[in-house]
């Protein structure tokens, strides 16, 4: 699957969490990331790399991701992204549903 079926969201705006919204991208749009973060200057690029890797690992190439970060660790960013993808109809490669 190059994209996802619908728009979906996971996560919260609480401290140490991140709210991820994903929406289908048009064919060939690539991975478009819009990031708000309380640590944007320090970790903005790292967060984008995690977001991009997580969706690419699931075989998704065309997607819009909005992430509002409240200081989440890498594992939380990954978990919330996977949850959003799952809710958006993606069939995940990892055996977690």
């Amino acid at each position: 699957m190059a994209s996802i079926a619908k728009t979906a969201q996971a996560g919260t705006l609480e401290s140490s969490d991140v709210m991820i919204t994903v929406a289908p991208g048009t064919q060939g749009s690539g991975i478009i990331i819009e990031l708000e973060s309380i640590v944007l200057a320090q970790y903005g690029e790292d967060i984008k790399i995690i977001l991009e890797k997580t969706v690419k690992d699931q075989g998704i190439t065309d997607i819009y991701i909005k992430a509002v970060d409240r200081g989440a660790l890498d594992c939380t960013i990954c978990a919330r992204t996977l949850a959003a993808l799952s809710r958006a109809g993606a069939v995940l490669k990892e055996e977690i549903i």
Partner: peptide, 15 residues
Amino acid sequence: KDAARFLVAQALRTV
């Protein structure tokens, strides 16, 4: 429940 499952799975792997 689904989101918590992802979070706990990731926490077990990394925390």
